[in-house]
Design a protein around this nucleic acid. Structure first.
Lengths: 229, 229
DNA sequence: TGCGATATTTCAATTCTGTGTCAGATTTGT
DNA sequence: ACAAATCTGACACAGAATTGAAATATCGCA
Protein backbone atom coordinates (compact mmCIF):
# COMPACT_ATOMS: atom_id res chain seq x y z
CA UNK A 1 0.00 0.00 0.00
CA UNK A 2 2.95 2.20 0.41
CA UNK A 3 4.60 1.38 -2.92
CA UNK A 4 3.01 3.50 -5.60
CA UNK A 5 1.54 1.60 -8.51
CA UNK A 6 2.50 2.86 -11.95
CA UNK A 7 1.04 1.98 -15.29
CA UNK A 8 3.45 2.51 -18.14
CA UNK A 9 1.92 2.71 -21.60
CA UNK A 10 4.76 2.43 -24.07
CA UNK A 11 5.17 0.36 -27.20
CA UNK A 12 8.91 0.76 -27.53
CA UNK A 13 9.87 -2.46 -25.78
CA UNK A 14 13.44 -1.47 -25.10
CA UNK A 15 12.47 1.80 -23.46
CA UNK A 16 9.66 0.15 -21.55
CA UNK A 17 11.98 -2.42 -20.08
CA UNK A 18 14.58 0.11 -19.16
CA UNK A 19 12.02 2.23 -17.34
CA UNK A 20 10.35 -0.72 -15.72
CA UNK A 21 13.65 -1.86 -14.30
CA UNK A 22 14.59 1.62 -13.14
CA UNK A 23 11.29 2.29 -11.43
CA UNK A 24 11.09 -1.07 -9.79
CA UNK A 25 14.48 -0.61 -8.29
CA UNK A 26 13.21 2.66 -6.86
CA UNK A 27 10.44 0.86 -5.10
CA UNK A 28 7.58 1.31 -7.52
CA UNK A 29 5.19 -1.36 -8.57
CA UNK A 30 5.17 -1.15 -12.37
CA UNK A 31 2.90 -2.65 -14.95
CA UNK A 32 3.50 -2.18 -18.64
CA UNK A 33 1.10 -2.11 -21.50
CA UNK A 34 1.97 -1.68 -25.14
CA UNK A 35 -1.32 -0.44 -26.46
CA UNK A 36 -4.15 1.80 -25.50
CA UNK A 37 -7.02 -0.63 -25.22
CA UNK A 38 -5.04 -2.98 -23.12
CA UNK A 39 -3.96 -0.09 -20.92
CA UNK A 40 -7.56 1.01 -20.39
CA UNK A 41 -8.49 -2.44 -19.23
CA UNK A 42 -5.62 -2.72 -16.84
CA UNK A 43 -6.30 0.75 -15.51
CA UNK A 44 -9.94 0.25 -14.80
CA UNK A 45 -9.50 -3.17 -13.30
CA UNK A 46 -6.87 -2.13 -10.85
CA UNK A 47 -6.43 1.64 -10.89
CA UNK A 48 -2.78 2.67 -10.66
CA UNK A 49 -1.61 5.67 -8.70
CA UNK A 50 -0.10 7.23 -11.79
CA UNK A 51 -0.01 6.62 -15.53
CA UNK A 52 2.98 7.27 -17.76
CA UNK A 53 1.63 7.51 -21.23
CA UNK A 54 3.49 7.67 -24.50
CA UNK A 55 1.73 10.06 -26.79
CA UNK A 56 2.61 8.12 -29.88
CA UNK A 57 1.55 4.54 -29.47
CA UNK A 58 0.07 2.14 -31.91
CA UNK A 59 -3.65 1.80 -32.11
CA UNK A 60 -5.58 4.17 -29.87
CA UNK A 61 -3.68 7.44 -29.70
CA UNK A 62 -2.35 8.84 -26.49
CA UNK A 63 -4.78 11.69 -26.43
CA UNK A 64 -7.62 9.26 -26.80
CA UNK A 65 -6.37 7.09 -23.96
CA UNK A 66 -6.02 10.17 -21.82
CA UNK A 67 -9.56 11.21 -22.58
CA UNK A 68 -10.93 7.78 -21.86
CA UNK A 69 -9.06 7.51 -18.61
CA UNK A 70 -10.59 10.79 -17.56
CA UNK A 71 -14.02 9.66 -18.52
CA UNK A 72 -13.95 6.42 -16.60
CA UNK A 73 -15.11 7.16 -13.12
CA UNK A 74 -12.55 4.87 -11.56
CA UNK A 75 -9.56 6.45 -13.24
CA UNK A 76 -10.82 9.99 -13.58
CA UNK A 77 -8.41 11.36 -11.00
CA UNK A 78 -5.35 9.27 -11.68
CA UNK A 79 -2.52 11.61 -12.62
CA UNK A 80 -1.06 11.19 -16.08
CA UNK A 81 2.43 12.04 -17.28
CA UNK A 82 2.80 11.95 -21.00
CA UNK A 83 5.87 11.34 -23.10
CA UNK A 84 6.01 13.54 -26.19
CA UNK A 85 8.36 14.20 -29.04
CA UNK A 86 10.59 17.15 -28.52
CA UNK A 87 9.06 19.83 -30.64
CA UNK A 88 5.41 19.04 -30.49
CA UNK A 89 4.24 22.00 -28.45
CA UNK A 90 0.73 21.62 -29.71
CA UNK A 91 0.59 18.09 -28.42
CA UNK A 92 1.81 19.21 -25.05
CA UNK A 93 -0.73 21.95 -24.70
CA UNK A 94 -3.46 19.72 -25.98
CA UNK A 95 -2.38 17.06 -23.55
CA UNK A 96 -2.49 19.37 -20.60
CA UNK A 97 -5.86 20.60 -21.70
CA UNK A 98 -7.14 17.08 -22.09
CA UNK A 99 -6.26 16.41 -18.52
CA UNK A 100 -2.71 15.18 -18.46
CA UNK A 101 -0.95 16.38 -15.37
CA UNK A 102 2.46 16.69 -16.80
CA UNK A 103 4.65 15.86 -19.73
CA UNK A 104 8.25 15.17 -20.49
CA UNK A 105 9.85 15.43 -23.89
CA UNK A 106 11.86 12.68 -25.46
CA UNK A 107 14.64 12.03 -25.14
CA UNK A 108 14.76 12.26 -21.40
CA UNK A 109 16.81 10.60 -18.74
CA UNK A 110 15.16 8.07 -16.47
CA UNK A 111 16.36 10.18 -13.59
CA UNK A 112 14.40 13.14 -14.79
CA UNK A 113 11.28 11.08 -15.27
CA UNK A 114 11.72 9.73 -11.78
CA UNK A 115 11.91 13.24 -10.42
CA UNK A 116 8.74 14.16 -12.26
CA UNK A 117 6.84 11.13 -11.13
CA UNK A 118 7.73 11.74 -7.57
CA UNK A 119 6.89 15.44 -7.91
CA UNK A 120 3.47 14.65 -9.30
CA UNK A 121 2.81 12.04 -6.66
CA UNK A 122 3.91 14.42 -3.98
CA UNK A 123 1.45 16.95 -5.29
CA UNK A 124 -1.46 14.62 -5.77
CA UNK A 125 -0.96 11.98 -3.13
CA UNK A 126 1.63 13.23 -0.67
CA UNK A 127 1.17 10.11 1.37
CA UNK A 128 2.41 7.96 -1.48
CA UNK A 129 5.60 9.94 -1.65
CA UNK A 130 6.08 9.25 2.03
CA UNK A 131 5.33 12.80 3.10
CA UNK A 132 3.20 13.70 6.03
CA UNK A 133 -0.10 15.20 5.12
CA UNK A 134 -1.59 18.03 7.07
CA UNK A 135 -5.13 19.22 7.19
CA UNK A 136 -5.96 21.83 9.74
CA UNK A 137 -4.72 20.62 13.08
CA UNK A 138 -4.47 17.05 11.88
CA UNK A 139 -1.21 15.53 10.79
CA UNK A 140 -0.76 12.12 9.28
CA UNK A 141 2.52 10.33 8.85
CA UNK A 142 2.02 7.61 6.25
CA UNK A 143 5.34 5.96 6.95
CA UNK A 144 4.78 5.64 10.66
CA UNK A 145 1.09 5.02 10.10
CA UNK A 146 0.12 7.50 12.71
CA UNK A 147 -2.17 10.42 13.06
CA UNK A 148 -1.92 13.21 15.52
CA UNK A 149 -4.02 16.18 16.39
CA UNK A 150 -2.56 19.17 18.17
CA UNK A 151 0.48 17.11 18.88
CA UNK A 152 -1.47 14.38 20.58
CA UNK A 153 -1.28 10.89 19.17
CA UNK A 154 -4.61 9.49 18.15
CA UNK A 155 -5.63 5.96 18.89
CA UNK A 156 -7.04 4.85 15.59
CA UNK A 157 -7.96 1.54 13.96
CA UNK A 158 -7.01 0.35 10.46
CA UNK A 159 -10.21 1.23 8.69
CA UNK A 160 -10.46 4.57 10.39
CA UNK A 161 -6.87 5.21 9.44
CA UNK A 162 -7.55 4.59 5.77
CA UNK A 163 -10.64 6.71 6.02
CA UNK A 164 -8.97 9.73 7.56
CA UNK A 165 -6.06 9.37 5.18
CA UNK A 166 -8.38 9.46 2.24
CA UNK A 167 -10.18 12.48 3.63
CA UNK A 168 -6.92 14.26 4.33
CA UNK A 169 -5.78 13.65 0.79
CA UNK A 170 -8.93 15.30 -0.48
CA UNK A 171 -9.93 17.92 2.03
CA UNK A 172 -13.19 19.84 1.76
CA UNK A 173 -14.51 17.58 -0.89
CA UNK A 174 -17.76 15.75 -0.28
CA UNK A 175 -17.83 12.01 -0.89
CA UNK A 176 -20.88 9.85 -1.06
CA UNK A 177 -20.96 6.67 0.96
CA UNK A 178 -20.51 4.68 -2.18
CA UNK A 179 -17.46 6.69 -3.21
CA UNK A 180 -15.98 6.14 0.21
CA UNK A 181 -16.61 2.43 -0.05
CA UNK A 182 -14.80 2.37 -3.36
CA UNK A 183 -11.91 4.47 -2.19
CA UNK A 184 -11.38 3.10 1.28
CA UNK A 185 -12.74 -0.43 1.14
CA UNK A 186 -11.81 -1.09 -2.47
CA UNK A 187 -13.89 -1.13 -5.59
CA UNK A 188 -16.65 -3.62 -5.66
CA UNK A 189 -16.87 -4.18 -1.96
CA UNK A 190 -20.26 -5.52 -1.09
CA UNK A 191 -20.66 -3.59 2.07
CA UNK A 192 -23.76 -1.87 3.38
CA UNK A 193 -23.66 1.85 2.87
CA UNK A 194 -24.89 2.43 6.37
CA UNK A 195 -21.75 0.84 7.65
CA UNK A 196 -19.90 3.89 6.49
CA UNK A 197 -21.83 5.86 9.07
CA UNK A 198 -20.58 3.61 11.76
CA UNK A 199 -16.99 4.08 10.76
CA UNK A 200 -17.49 7.81 10.47
CA UNK A 201 -18.71 7.73 14.01
CA UNK A 202 -15.71 5.71 15.13
CA UNK A 203 -13.43 8.10 13.32
CA UNK A 204 -15.09 11.08 14.91
CA UNK A 205 -14.68 9.55 18.28
CA UNK A 206 -11.05 8.71 17.58
CA UNK A 207 -10.09 12.20 16.50
CA UNK A 208 -12.03 13.99 19.19
CA UNK A 209 -9.60 15.87 21.38
CA UNK A 210 -10.69 18.21 24.12
CA UNK A 211 -11.91 21.57 22.87
CA UNK A 212 -11.70 20.70 19.22
CA UNK A 213 -14.60 20.86 16.91
CA UNK A 214 -15.51 17.91 14.75
CA UNK A 215 -13.82 18.44 11.39
CA UNK A 216 -15.99 15.92 9.60
CA UNK A 217 -18.91 17.57 7.97
CA UNK A 218 -22.07 15.64 7.31
CA UNK A 219 -23.68 16.70 4.08
CA UNK A 220 -27.16 15.43 4.28
CA UNK A 221 -28.23 13.28 1.37
CA UNK A 222 -24.77 13.63 -0.14
CA UNK A 223 -22.11 12.19 2.13
CA UNK A 224 -19.25 13.41 4.27
CA UNK A 225 -16.34 15.79 3.90
CA UNK A 226 -13.31 16.72 5.91
CA UNK A 227 -13.41 20.37 6.78
CA UNK A 228 -9.99 21.30 8.09
CA UNK A 229 -10.17 23.75 10.95
CA UNK B 1 -10.69 36.07 -4.46
CA UNK B 2 -11.80 34.79 -7.73
CA UNK B 3 -8.87 36.00 -9.80
CA UNK B 4 -5.81 33.92 -9.02
CA UNK B 5 -2.85 35.94 -7.79
CA UNK B 6 0.44 35.17 -9.44
CA UNK B 7 3.89 36.24 -8.43
CA UNK B 8 6.31 36.32 -11.32
CA UNK B 9 9.98 36.34 -10.39
CA UNK B 10 11.88 37.23 -13.54
CA UNK B 11 14.70 39.69 -14.17
CA UNK B 12 14.42 39.76 -17.92
CA UNK B 13 12.24 42.83 -18.17
CA UNK B 14 11.04 42.18 -21.68
CA UNK B 15 9.90 38.66 -20.89
CA UNK B 16 8.35 39.76 -17.63
CA UNK B 17 6.28 42.39 -19.35
CA UNK B 18 5.15 40.05 -22.04
CA UNK B 19 4.01 37.48 -19.52
CA UNK B 20 2.44 40.04 -17.26
CA UNK B 21 0.39 41.36 -20.10
CA UNK B 22 -0.61 37.91 -21.27
CA UNK B 23 -1.66 36.67 -17.87
CA UNK B 24 -3.51 39.80 -16.97
CA UNK B 25 -5.54 39.57 -20.11
CA UNK B 26 -6.43 36.04 -19.05
CA UNK B 27 -7.83 37.34 -15.81
CA UNK B 28 -4.93 36.79 -13.49
CA UNK B 29 -3.70 39.27 -10.96
CA UNK B 30 0.04 39.49 -11.59
CA UNK B 31 2.84 40.99 -9.57
CA UNK B 32 6.38 41.01 -10.82
CA UNK B 33 9.60 40.97 -8.93
CA UNK B 34 13.06 41.07 -10.43
CA UNK B 35 15.05 39.59 -7.62
CA UNK B 36 14.80 36.93 -4.99
CA UNK B 37 14.82 38.95 -1.80
CA UNK B 38 12.20 41.27 -3.08
CA UNK B 39 10.12 38.29 -4.17
CA UNK B 40 10.33 36.72 -0.73
CA UNK B 41 9.05 39.89 0.85
CA UNK B 42 6.16 40.23 -1.53
CA UNK B 43 5.30 36.59 -1.13
CA UNK B 44 5.20 36.54 2.62
CA UNK B 45 3.36 39.84 2.89
CA UNK B 46 0.60 38.84 0.55
CA UNK B 47 0.88 35.18 -0.40
CA UNK B 48 0.10 34.60 -4.05
CA UNK B 49 -1.78 31.56 -5.30
CA UNK B 50 1.12 30.52 -7.47
CA UNK B 51 4.72 31.55 -8.08
CA UNK B 52 6.43 31.52 -11.44
CA UNK B 53 10.12 31.52 -10.72
CA UNK B 54 13.00 31.98 -13.08
CA UNK B 55 15.82 29.71 -12.06
CA UNK B 56 18.50 32.11 -13.17
CA UNK B 57 17.94 35.44 -11.54
CA UNK B 58 20.35 37.91 -10.12
CA UNK B 59 21.14 37.82 -6.46
CA UNK B 60 19.52 34.98 -4.57
CA UNK B 61 19.33 31.98 -6.86
CA UNK B 62 16.10 30.39 -7.86
CA UNK B 63 16.74 27.28 -5.87
CA UNK B 64 17.35 29.36 -2.80
CA UNK B 65 14.14 31.30 -3.27
CA UNK B 66 12.29 28.04 -3.72
CA UNK B 67 13.77 26.66 -0.54
CA UNK B 68 12.94 29.76 1.43
CA UNK B 69 9.41 29.89 0.14
CA UNK B 70 8.95 26.33 1.30
CA UNK B 71 10.38 27.14 4.68
CA UNK B 72 8.16 30.11 5.39
CA UNK B 73 4.97 28.80 6.88
CA UNK B 74 2.84 31.28 5.01
CA UNK B 75 4.14 30.28 1.60
CA UNK B 76 5.02 26.66 2.27
CA UNK B 77 2.19 25.34 0.16
CA UNK B 78 2.10 27.85 -2.64
CA UNK B 79 2.77 25.99 -5.88
CA UNK B 80 5.88 26.98 -7.79
CA UNK B 81 6.54 26.70 -11.49
CA UNK B 82 10.10 27.30 -12.44
CA UNK B 83 11.55 28.52 -15.69
CA UNK B 84 14.78 26.80 -16.65
CA UNK B 85 17.22 26.85 -19.50
CA UNK B 86 16.69 24.13 -22.01
CA UNK B 87 19.54 21.87 -21.29
CA UNK B 88 19.91 22.20 -17.57
CA UNK B 89 18.55 18.84 -16.61
CA UNK B 90 20.28 18.94 -13.29
CA UNK B 91 18.55 22.17 -12.41
CA UNK B 92 15.21 20.72 -13.28
CA UNK B 93 15.67 17.66 -11.20
CA UNK B 94 17.07 19.66 -8.34
CA UNK B 95 14.18 22.05 -8.61
CA UNK B 96 11.58 19.35 -8.41
CA UNK B 97 13.44 17.84 -5.50
CA UNK B 98 13.56 21.17 -3.73
CA UNK B 99 9.83 21.43 -3.90
CA UNK B 100 8.96 23.12 -7.12
CA UNK B 101 5.73 21.79 -8.50
CA UNK B 102 6.58 22.05 -12.10
CA UNK B 103 9.00 23.50 -14.58
CA UNK B 104 9.01 24.69 -18.11
CA UNK B 105 12.08 25.06 -20.26
CA UNK B 106 12.97 28.20 -22.13
CA UNK B 107 12.11 29.09 -24.72
CA UNK B 108 8.45 28.39 -24.21
CA UNK B 109 5.30 29.93 -25.56
CA UNK B 110 3.10 31.96 -23.24
CA UNK B 111 0.28 29.69 -24.27
CA UNK B 112 2.09 26.69 -22.94
CA UNK B 113 2.88 28.40 -19.67
CA UNK B 114 -0.76 29.39 -19.36
CA UNK B 115 -1.82 25.79 -19.79
CA UNK B 116 0.62 24.73 -17.11
CA UNK B 117 -0.44 27.39 -14.67
CA UNK B 118 -4.04 26.54 -15.04
CA UNK B 119 -3.30 22.82 -14.73
CA UNK B 120 -1.43 23.37 -11.50
CA UNK B 121 -4.09 25.66 -10.10
CA UNK B 122 -6.80 23.23 -10.99
CA UNK B 123 -4.99 20.60 -9.04
CA UNK B 124 -4.20 22.71 -6.04
CA UNK B 125 -7.08 25.09 -5.69
CA UNK B 126 -10.01 23.91 -7.75
CA UNK B 127 -11.97 26.91 -6.63
CA UNK B 128 -9.46 29.20 -8.28
CA UNK B 129 -9.48 27.41 -11.59
CA UNK B 130 -13.04 28.36 -12.18
CA UNK B 131 -14.62 25.19 -10.95
CA UNK B 132 -16.98 27.14 -8.78
CA UNK B 133 -20.10 28.73 -10.10
CA UNK B 134 -20.50 32.39 -9.39
CA UNK B 135 -23.47 34.65 -9.74
CA UNK B 136 -23.28 38.11 -8.30
CA UNK B 137 -22.18 37.84 -4.72
CA UNK B 138 -23.07 34.17 -4.57
CA UNK B 139 -20.52 31.46 -5.01
CA UNK B 140 -21.19 27.78 -5.17
CA UNK B 141 -18.59 25.07 -4.86
CA UNK B 142 -20.10 21.89 -6.25
CA UNK B 143 -17.25 19.73 -5.03
CA UNK B 144 -17.49 20.86 -1.46
CA UNK B 145 -21.24 21.18 -1.75
CA UNK B 146 -21.27 24.63 -0.32
CA UNK B 147 -22.68 27.99 -1.09
CA UNK B 148 -21.41 31.25 0.23
CA UNK B 149 -22.51 34.83 -0.04
CA UNK B 150 -20.11 37.66 0.60
CA UNK B 151 -17.75 35.16 2.07
CA UNK B 152 -20.27 33.89 4.57
CA UNK B 153 -21.18 30.23 4.48
CA UNK B 154 -24.84 29.59 3.95
CA UNK B 155 -26.75 26.97 5.81
CA UNK B 156 -28.74 25.26 3.14
CA UNK B 157 -30.69 22.02 2.76
CA UNK B 158 -30.47 19.50 -0.09
CA UNK B 159 -33.43 20.69 -2.11
CA UNK B 160 -32.56 24.33 -1.70
CA UNK B 161 -29.01 23.47 -2.73
CA UNK B 162 -30.15 21.88 -5.94
CA UNK B 163 -32.46 24.79 -6.55
CA UNK B 164 -29.86 27.51 -6.12
CA UNK B 165 -27.38 25.51 -8.15
CA UNK B 166 -29.82 25.29 -11.00
CA UNK B 167 -30.53 29.00 -10.81
CA UNK B 168 -26.85 29.85 -10.70
CA UNK B 169 -26.22 27.74 -13.74
CA UNK B 170 -28.85 29.72 -15.59
CA UNK B 171 -28.86 33.21 -14.21
CA UNK B 172 -31.43 35.82 -15.19
CA UNK B 173 -33.58 33.30 -16.95
CA UNK B 174 -37.14 32.83 -15.77
CA UNK B 175 -38.37 29.34 -15.03
CA UNK B 176 -41.93 28.27 -14.51
CA UNK B 177 -42.77 26.16 -11.51
CA UNK B 178 -43.19 23.18 -13.72
CA UNK B 179 -39.79 23.68 -15.31
CA UNK B 180 -38.25 23.94 -11.89
CA UNK B 181 -39.96 20.74 -10.83
CA UNK B 182 -38.52 18.98 -13.84
CA UNK B 183 -35.06 20.37 -13.41
CA UNK B 184 -34.66 20.17 -9.67
CA UNK B 185 -36.99 17.42 -8.58
CA UNK B 186 -36.62 15.32 -11.71
CA UNK B 187 -38.95 14.84 -14.58
CA UNK B 188 -42.21 13.25 -13.75
CA UNK B 189 -42.26 14.24 -10.12
CA UNK B 190 -45.79 14.30 -8.86
CA UNK B 191 -45.39 17.35 -6.75
CA UNK B 192 -47.76 20.24 -6.33
CA UNK B 193 -46.62 23.36 -8.10
CA UNK B 194 -47.43 25.40 -5.05
CA UNK B 195 -44.74 23.55 -3.20
CA UNK B 196 -42.17 25.29 -5.30
CA UNK B 197 -43.20 28.53 -3.65
CA UNK B 198 -42.39 27.08 -0.31
CA UNK B 199 -38.92 26.05 -1.36
CA UNK B 200 -38.32 29.41 -2.94
CA UNK B 201 -39.20 30.93 0.36
CA UNK B 202 -36.83 28.60 2.18
CA UNK B 203 -34.11 29.40 -0.28
CA UNK B 204 -34.65 33.10 0.11
CA UNK B 205 -34.40 32.76 3.82
CA UNK B 206 -31.25 30.67 3.55
CA UNK B 207 -29.41 33.11 1.35
CA UNK B 208 -30.51 36.21 3.21
CA UNK B 209 -27.46 37.92 4.63
CA UNK B 210 -27.56 41.28 6.33
CA UNK B 211 -27.79 44.23 3.95
CA UNK B 212 -28.23 42.15 0.85
CA UNK B 213 -31.17 42.37 -1.40
CA UNK B 214 -33.07 39.26 -2.43
CA UNK B 215 -31.61 38.08 -5.73
CA UNK B 216 -34.56 35.86 -6.57
CA UNK B 217 -37.02 37.68 -8.71
CA UNK B 218 -40.66 36.69 -8.74
CA UNK B 219 -42.12 36.99 -12.19
CA UNK B 220 -45.80 37.10 -11.70
CA UNK B 221 -47.70 34.43 -13.57
CA UNK B 222 -44.45 33.14 -15.07
CA UNK B 223 -42.15 31.82 -12.39
CA UNK B 224 -38.88 32.78 -10.78
CA UNK B 225 -35.45 33.91 -11.88
CA UNK B 226 -32.11 34.52 -10.24
CA UNK B 227 -31.09 38.12 -10.70
CA UNK B 228 -27.43 38.32 -9.71
CA UNK B 229 -26.61 41.48 -7.82
C1' DT C 1 -61.98 47.12 -4.77
C1' DG C 2 -61.74 42.47 -6.24
C1' DC C 3 -59.42 38.65 -8.15
C1' DG C 4 -55.73 35.87 -9.24
C1' DA C 5 -51.29 35.00 -7.74
C1' DT C 6 -47.66 34.78 -4.37
C1' DA C 7 -45.82 34.77 0.55
C1' DT C 8 -45.77 32.83 4.96
C1' DT C 9 -46.81 29.77 8.63
C1' DT C 10 -47.67 25.44 10.40
C1' DC C 11 -47.70 20.53 10.76
C1' DA C 12 -47.50 15.62 9.97
C1' DA C 13 -45.06 12.34 7.22
C1' DT C 14 -40.95 10.98 5.55
C1' DT C 15 -36.14 10.55 4.99
C1' DC C 16 -31.68 10.51 6.77
C1' DT C 17 -28.20 10.30 10.35
C1' DG C 18 -26.29 9.12 15.09
C1' DT C 19 -25.45 5.65 18.29
C1' DG C 20 -25.43 1.34 21.16
C1' DT C 21 -24.89 -3.34 20.71
C1' DC C 22 -23.83 -7.89 19.01
C1' DA C 23 -21.74 -11.89 16.67
C1' DG C 24 -18.22 -13.20 13.94
C1' DA C 25 -13.53 -12.34 11.99
C1' DT C 26 -8.99 -11.00 12.63
C1' DT C 27 -4.98 -9.82 15.09
C1' DT C 28 -1.96 -9.95 19.03
C1' DG C 29 0.65 -11.68 22.74
C1' DT C 30 2.35 -15.58 24.98
C1' DA D 1 -1.54 -23.08 19.00
C1' DC D 2 -4.50 -20.79 22.26
C1' DA D 3 -6.88 -17.21 24.57
C1' DA D 4 -7.56 -12.40 24.92
C1' DA D 5 -8.09 -8.22 22.73
C1' DT D 6 -9.41 -5.67 18.91
C1' DC D 7 -11.71 -4.79 14.79
C1' DT D 8 -15.68 -5.28 11.47
C1' DG D 9 -19.94 -5.15 9.47
C1' DA D 10 -24.73 -5.30 10.36
C1' DC D 11 -28.88 -4.05 12.57
C1' DA D 12 -32.31 -1.53 15.06
C1' DC D 13 -34.09 2.25 17.19
C1' DA D 14 -33.99 7.17 18.60
C1' DG D 15 -33.49 11.61 17.21
C1' DA D 16 -32.82 15.26 13.87
C1' DA D 17 -33.53 17.46 9.65
C1' DT D 18 -36.10 17.85 5.55
C1' DT D 19 -40.12 17.68 2.82
C1' DG D 20 -44.64 18.38 0.80
C1' DA D 21 -49.15 19.93 1.51
C1' DA D 22 -52.69 22.67 3.32
C1' DA D 23 -54.40 26.76 5.42
C1' DT D 24 -54.09 31.62 5.86
C1' DA D 25 -52.25 36.18 5.01
C1' DT D 26 -50.50 39.54 1.52
C1' DC D 27 -49.57 41.43 -2.60
C1' DG D 28 -50.08 43.31 -7.47
C1' DC D 29 -52.61 44.93 -10.85
C1' DA D 30 -56.74 45.89 -13.84
Amino acid sequence: MSTPKLLLVEDDTALAELLEYRFESEGYDVRVSADGDDAMMMASEDPPDLVILDWMIEGTSGIEVCRRLRRDKVTAHVPIIMLTAREAEDDRVRGLETGADDYITKPFSPRELLARVSAVLRRVRPALAGETIEAGDLRLDPVAHRVERRGRQLQIGPTEYRLIKFFMEHPRRVFSRSQLLDAVWGTGSEIEERTVDVHIRRLRKAIAVENTRDPIRTVRSAGYALEPV
